[in-house]
Design a protein around this nucleic acid. Sequence first.
DNA 1: AATTCCGCCAACCGCAGGTTC
DNA 2: TGAACCTGCGGTTGGCGGAAT
Length: 290
Amino acid sequence: MDIDQVMRSQYDSSSSVHAEEVTFDVRKGPWTADEDALLANHIKIHGEGRWNLVARCAGLKRTGKSCRLRWLNYLRPDLRRGNMTLEEQLLILGLHCRWGNRWSKIAQYLPGRTDNEIKNYWRTRVQKLAKHLKCEVNSKQFRDAMRCVWMPRFVEQIRTSAQGPLNGLTENPRTHGIGSEDSVDDDHTNLLPELSSSVSSDSFSDAQFSSSPSPNQAGGNGSDRFKLGLGDGPEHWTGYSEGWQLGVDAGEQEDSNGRLVSEEDSLESLWNEENVWFLQQQLFEEAFRL
DNA sequence: AATTCCGCCAACCGCAGGTTC
DNA sequence: TGAACCTGCGGTTGGCGGAAT
């Protein structure tokens, strides 16, 4: 018996259910341990999906949306906890250059992290930094600074740190277990081990990898093509021309609205004063706790 | 010790797109 | 075909806890 049958057998045949829906006393606010247990138990037995029915079936006075959110952002067993690693921060910056505020998309590349978590991270760290620098977080200047200056700094930090390979990024939990079939295509998963081995090796600076999801896979269309080139090595990373490129051809980047920005346009008059540079470096390190 | 400020994060809201009937 | 419903996404908010005063 699949979940649909279970649900229908329990609810659809009962006319009183609909009356209950009308007078449903919806709970809001923080979840209790009991509610968590009810939800987790129910999903363990019946699986995810059909959240409105899950809410009713599990005996929760919550909306389906609330149940879904609680599961995805807190109860899911494959969630990672704790601070973002350097590698994760680097990925977020890079992927945000590519996709802008498409948090769920970005989250697909950070196994165990939720879109909500990444969104919060962005707001608290990156936007804070932009605020310190008195520029718009989506401005050309700020984005260029991220892509051409700070991301290479991250790479250098990762490379020189004793943390070893990309912690936890060598496997994508969403390709296993609950919800594994529809979320992330295999090519996205394949990306990560390659990055991992590159980071951990001395030849990281030469690392280059690409991924081309097939169009018929979930979430994989032509525009999802993902490639990350690191250019010629650390000695070049503080410059821009050999910097990062994510998913678009060299010499142009997409802004948060998907608009292409040319390299020539984007970097004029950037970093032309030594003291500004220094200040921004300090703020960056503070914001990202390097 | 008390109060205020601030950062972080969980959760809600509105909207858009997809699905079902 | 269109209305109703469901799901997922991104933006926003409120509360909690720690730091600063």
